[in-house]
């Protein structure tokens, strides 16, 4: 089972002028097997939603709830959320100098599973995941995200998604900055994940381009800290044609 329920979520961030509300009552339910795309203009709070779900300390939850299979996600620490089955593919993955990809992946897998992976199958799994994302075998020896190209960072995020096998994946603008070949490779990785039993995906994007490769079940337009409109994938086509103007005007 994997059901992520976000109810009336309010989030503030600390600014020089005091706390500023970014999320203003988000409601969203992702049932198992569903892929939801969240689309919206810059500054609408899409990334804040992603980071709030993952538990970044910069954001303060002031109201509402997030549950995963009934468990109160907001009561958990960042690492507990990951172990509960949440995964955030970040827009700007962070460099960790001196820590190799191979060490990082093994440490993460061990933490998620509560036991070290079996060496023989693990090496095979890692090599397979890297290969499928077109990352060569020397990649595992490099320091995490250090000196990676933009595309390598994103492909590395998706390799982690495959290996850590969460219940629900939140993908924060995974498509931004990718050329078409990299976009296809990343999309294929996400689709392989979706094919697994009972997985949920929350795909946050500014552009409709990635939706040609990852077909969403639902599309939500995100404006000014909440969902302004929801629909099927035809909503994405409408946004492609008309842009966000209508929502921004309505908002203003």
């Amino acid at each position: 089972m994997s059901k992520l329920v976000i109810t009336d979520l309010h989030v503030t961030v600390e600014t020089e002028d005091g706390p500023k509300e970014i999320l203003k009552g988000v409601d969203l339910t992702i049932n198992e097997g569903e892929t939801h795309a969240i689309m919206g203009p810059n500054g609408s709070g899409k990334s804040t939603l992603a980071y709030s779900i993952a538990g970044h300390p910069k954001y303060t939850i002031t109201g509402g709830s997030v549950t995963l299979d009934g468990q109160d996600v907001l009561a958990l620490s960042v690492d507990e959320r990951a172990r509960a089955g949440l995964f955030l593919a970040m827009q700007y993955p962070v460099e960790v100098p001196g820590v190799s990809v191979s060490n990082f992946l093994r440490t993460a897998k061990t933490a998620i599973d509560g036991e070290a992976p079996k060496l023989r199958t693990w090496v095979k799994d890692v090599n397979g995941a890297l290969e499928r994302l077109n990352l060569d075998s020397t990649f595992a020896q490099r320091s995490v995200n250090e000196g990676f190209s933009g595309g390598e960072k994103k492909r590395h995020e998706i390799a982690q998604l495959e290996l850590l096998d969460p219940k629900v994946a939140v993908l924060d603008e995974t498509d931004s900055g990718l050329d078409i070949d990299a976009l296809k490779i990343v999309s294929e990785g996400v689709n392989r994940f979706r094919e697994r039993e009972g997985k949920g995906v929350l795909l946050i994007t500014h552009y409709t381009r990635i939706l040609r490769y990852i077909e969403p079940d639902f599309v939500h337009v995100f404006v000014d800290g909440k969902v302004a409109e929801s629909g099927g994938k035809e909503l994405a086509d409408q946004l492609e044609a008309e842009g966000y103007d209508k929502y921004l005007k309505a908002n203003a």
Binding site: A54, G55, H56, P57, S77, V78, D79, R81, A82, R83, F87, L88, M90, P93, V94, E95, V96, P97, G98, V99, N103, F104, T107, A108, A111, I112, S143, Q160, L164
Partner: peptide, 22 residues
């Protein structure tokens, strides 16, 4: 860095340890 590591399930202390070793 700590957030990134923790978001992969690694506890805060182990994340600190990885960073220092690194």
């Amino acid at each position: 860095q700590l957030f990134y590591l923790q978001s992969r399930g690694v506890s805060e202390q182990e994340a600190q340890r990885l960073v220092v070793h690194g």
